[in-house]
């Protein structure tokens, strides 16, 4: 049972632990990217070949027309516009008109925002304008539901929560429109782009 009394200290030297951890840390820092999965949602219309070709007449007053040409210049309701940020209040006024101004929309349910681009329009400009249109709608929904715009966008993506669903129904006016439809739909029509130069 006799043991050598001069045995070494059994502790492991842990001073290099920090260096090892640093190396691992640097490896993960370099090889990974933080996932960026946020953006602007748009639902696409059905396949054009399967859609019936019916000519629906939409009164001029219920259309809010935005056009962008190949030089990224804006034409809103027939007038040139420089500042993209002006679109947002204009859309709110248009949608919430409720038939007061005969040139503007009948009701939020009938209001349609039409966005037409050229084939030469850059994606950046398109995103900017789409962002403004969606922003205007989210602002209005959030107002109706009594929440902030940011909160509205969060709750829309998580409708499993009954509280979120309740607020969503208030904001969109689900079942309050004609034939039990949504009273406050977000109707954005993205038209087929024109050929270069238009």
């Amino acid at each position: 049972m006799a043991r050598n009394k001069n045995r070494e200290d059994p502790q492991i030297n842990s001073s290099s632990m920090a260096d090892i951890a640093f190396l691992l840390l640097i490896f993960f820092l370099v090889t990974t990217t933080i996932a960026n999965d946020r953006g602007l949602f748009i639902p696409l219309p059905p396949d054009p070949d399967q859609m019936e070709d019916i000519d629906i007449k939409i009164p001029e007053r219920n259309l809010f027309k935005i056009q962008i040409n190949s030089a990224d210049k804006l034409l809103v309701e027939g007038e040139p516009l420089q500042d993209v940020n002006e679109i947002r209040p204009m859309i709110k006024e248009f949608v919430l008109n409720n038939g007061r101004d005969p040139e503007s929309s009948d009701s939020p349910e009938k209001a349609i925002v039409s966005l037409k681009t050229d084939r030469g329009t850059t994606q950046q400009k398109f995103i900017q304008v789409l962002d403004e249109i969606q922003g205007a709608y989210y602002d209005m929904y959030a107002d109706r539901a009594g929440v902030t715009n940011k909160r509205w966008r969060e709750l829309v993506d998580d409708l499993k929560d009954p509280e979120n669903k309740r607020l969503y129904d208030i904001g969109r006016g689900v079942g309050e429109g004609e034939d039990g439809k949504v009273a406050f739909p977000m109707q954005i029509s993205i038209a087929e782009p024109t050929k270069i130069g238009g």
Binding site: L40, P43, L44, D49
Partner: peptide
């Protein structure tokens, strides 16, 4: 639209 994948997200 033809492929019936109609949920689209533009990542920004």
């Amino acid at each position: 639209r033809k492929a019936n994948a109609r949920k689209l997200l533009y990542t920004t």
